[in-house]
């Protein structure tokens, strides 16, 4: 609250502009569109769909990027094998669902297995190169090359889709008006239930992370470590355990994101790079090492991609890139990044 107050007193014009944008955006989403606007922007349903897809995609990006940013913040390790963990999680999840038919079962299994892979990496590889950030990062490149080829070897080049369970399939009607029928009846947006579930899950996981980070002892340790690793090392905490826990958690989260990505998109070689890059951009935009930053960045990038795809298909990549370049130029530490 007080930060909001600060903001409004320190940057009155900026605050008004932001408020106006937020109000305008809310109006675009909730109000039925007048015909003039539909002529300019196309059907409201298309717009709403783009927004929803953007936010859902953002949720997926957040799941991948939050582990990445946490590892980066704590260990200063740009884990370029993060995308491989995502894809590995997706493939394993596919295997579990295919074998047992239980979608939900895939989550704990993947979390444990991919988390264990992360544990192994941290314990066997990165711990041996402590303090050599560049070398650690180079190792992650090597690992991503090896993992990519091993996965290609085992799962082949075809693409897989994880089947979503019965109870999550089909559309759901949401209380957003997309238009009005001639008889005065309002038409509401219908949207795949599974995507809503993903969005919901991402929010729950995000909040849980926030609580752990801000309200628990472990979280305090991690935050202290992100701010100043020397303090953490000097405090006598077995810093290695904190590193292990964070790396395993980040890896597990990437694995889970793989199942989700495999459910509402698909899994194939190359998806690892795609999600690694998404994580990079999200983290650069949101702020390196910051969880709320990852959330903000993920939503911005998700929205930019989907809105770009609908309204300017050729240039959707350029949008993403422009956002990143502008952030780098004016706020190199990212939107919510602290001082470096």
């Amino acid at each position: 609250m007080s930060t909001l107050h600060n903001l409004s007193t320190r940057h009155p014009v900026g605050t008004i502009v932001i408020l106006a944008l937020v109000v305008g955006f809310a109006w675009l989403i909730f109000a039925p569109w007048p015909p003039g606007l539909e002529q300019v922007m196309g059907r409201k349903r298309v717009f709403l769909n783009a927004i929803f897809s953007g936010v859902t995609l953002g949720a997926l990006y957040f799941l991948v990027a939050s582990g990445f940013t946490l590892v980066f913040g704590l260990m200063r390790n740009v884990n370029l094998a993060h995308g491989s963990l995502y894809l590995l999680g997706g493939y394993i999840g596919y295997g579990v669902v295919d074998a047992t038919g239980y979608w939900l079962l895939a989550f704990p299994v993947v979390f444990v297995v991919v988390g264990a892979v992360g544990l192994l990496l941290q314990h066997q590889v990165f711990r041996r190169m402590e303090g050599e950030e560049l070398r650690q990062t180079l190792v992650t490149i090597g690992i991503s090359i090896v993992l990519a080829d091993l996965m290609l070897w085992y799962w082949g080049g075809q693409s897989y889709q994880v089947l979503s369970p019965q109870w999550l399939s089909g559309p759901i009607t949401l209380p957003f008006v997309t238009g009005v029928r001639p008889n005065g009846q309002a038409v509401y947006l219908s949207y795949p239930l599974v995507r809503i579930a993903i969005l919901f899950a991402a929010i729950v996981i995000g909040l849980a992370m926030w609580f752990v980070l801000n309200r628990s002892k472990l979280g305090m340790l991690i935050r202290a470590g992100v701010d100043d690793r020397d303090i953490l090392a000097a405090s006598g905490v077995r810093i290695q355990y904190v590193f292990l826990a964070v790396f395993a958690f980040g890896a597990g989260l990437a694995g889970i994101a793989g199942i989700i990505g495999g459910t509402f998109q698909s899994l194939s070689p190359g998806e690892d790079t795609r999600f690694l890059l998404a994580s990079l951009v999200v983290v650069i935009v949101g702020g390196m090492g910051s969880i709320p930053g990852a959330a903000l960045g993920a939503v911005i990038i998700g929205l930019a991609e989907q809105i770009g795809l609908v309204y300017a298909p050729t240039y959707s990549v350029v949008f993403t890139f422009l956002i990143m370049a502008v952030v780098l130029a004016f706020r190199p530490q990212g939107l919510l990044g602290g001082r470096r």
Binding site: R76, V78, L80, E133, L134, T137, L280, V283, I284, M288, L328, P332, Q333, R340
Partner: peptide
């Protein structure tokens, strides 16, 4: 930005 950020 500095150091390993360059890679990203």
């Amino acid at each position: 930005t500095e150091g390993i950020y360059t890679i990203m």
